[in-house]
């Protein structure tokens, strides 16, 4: 099989970025065999510093970067612009207000003729149309499967596997933290504050959990789905958002007695409805998944309802989606 070398930069080297480096290290040979592409990481940038090597960055250099040893004087933008490569992987933390620094990274990459694969929700939710136009103008692709539902495929599922179908609605659980909290509250009959504290202790909820529990994270993901699948031009402000902090153990018990569970559901449909709210889900509905799992039911005109369930978070899970996006560009 003819081999094509695909040079990659990883901008943002936290959990997800290093997860990408890890899966590329593990899967490089198998991907070369199966898909005929040789993935080579030629640049990594993080707040701590940057490393670059045309021959592929070494394991030692990665270790040194992780250890916080200052590496060279280049910036992330220097890597994106000046180091020759094909795909820029953007994995800096999400900022839903400004989209930065991811937005500048993505724009710079497209203008420099790189494909973009990202897990970063901010830029995609804020500037979807602008970024798509820019990508088209430069003949490059921008892919973001990892931004919605982590490892769970939704965007490529609809665009590729369900091609030809009209999509009527997508509803689901797009935030693992909220799912964990509501599942624990219902199963253990514990108050919200207690379970939140527990979730923070085991690292499922962040120290400032407001983006998750107030539904902001779910809403941002919904905006991405609305724009990329339903062709809307929506922003966060178009989403009606209610979080889970008002949910009481009593309410969960009453729901249970009536045959339901309560889940934070993101709901987008072709009529333009964009809503995040706690909803009653029948216990036997496929959307009733527990723990930190994510789930989405896609309602289509031909295939009917399709439900996907998967891990919504985690470095290797997100890296899985990023890897599939990279391979997708070349197949």
């Amino acid at each position: 099989m003819k081999q094509e070398t695909v040079r990659i930069s990883i901008i943002g080297f936290g959990y997800v970025g290093s997860g990408v480096a890890e899966v590329i290290r593990r899967k490089r040979e198998a991907i070369a065999r199966k898909h005929g592409i040789d993935l080579k990481i030629v640049g990594i940038a993080d707040l701590k510093g940057v490393i670059a090597d045309e021959q592929g960055v070494s394991e030692e250099a990665i270790r040194a970067l992780k250890a916080g040893e200052k590496q060279g004087d280049m910036t992330s933008l220097d890597i994106i612009r000046d180091v020759a490569h094909e795909v820029m992987v953007e994995t800096t933390p999400t900022n839903v207000e400004t989209g930065e620094p991811g937005l500048t990274h993505i724009i710079t990459a497209l203008e420099s003729g790189r494909h973009v694969v990202t897990s970063n929700k901010g830029p995609i939710a804020l500037e979807y149309q602008k970024l798509m136009e820019l990508a088209a103008k430069h003949g490059k692709e921008i892919k973001f499967e990892a931004a919605v539902g982590g490892a769970m495929p939704i965007i490529s599922l609809v665009r590729e596997n369900l091609a030809g179908n009209g999509v009527m609605s997508i509803k689901g659980i797009l935030n693992g933290t909220c799912n964990y909290i509501l599942t624990r509250m219902a199963e253990e009959d514990l108050p919200y504050e207690h379970v939140l504290k527990e979730a923070q202790e085991i690292g499922i909820a962040e120290t400032d959990p407001s983006k998750d529990i107030e539904g902001v994270d779910t809403a941002v993901k919904l905006v991405i789905l609305a724009n990329s699948i339903f062709g809307m031009n929506a922003t966060y402000n178009d989403v009606k958002v209610v979080g889970i902090s008002e949910i009481t153990p009593d309410a969960l018990k009453l729901a249970n007695d009536a045959g339901y569970v309560i889940k934070l559901i993101g709901d987008v449909d072709s009529d333009g409805r964009l809503e995040v709210a706690p909803r009653l889900v029948p216990k036997d509905d496929p959307l009733n998944v527990g723990g930190t799992l994510n789930v989405a039911t896609i309602k289509t005109d031909l295939a009917g309802e399709i439900t996907v369930i998967g891990k919504g978070a985690g470095p290797i899970e997100a890296a899985s989606a990023i890897l599939s996006d990279i391979i997708g560009i070349y197949s």
Binding site: E246, T248, D250, A251, K253, L254, A255, D257, A258
Partner: peptide, 17 residues
Amino acid sequence: LSLSMPGVDMTSSASVT
């Protein structure tokens, strides 16, 4: 209507059919 009242001045919950 099923009503659950944890206490005076506390948030109550109801399931309504």
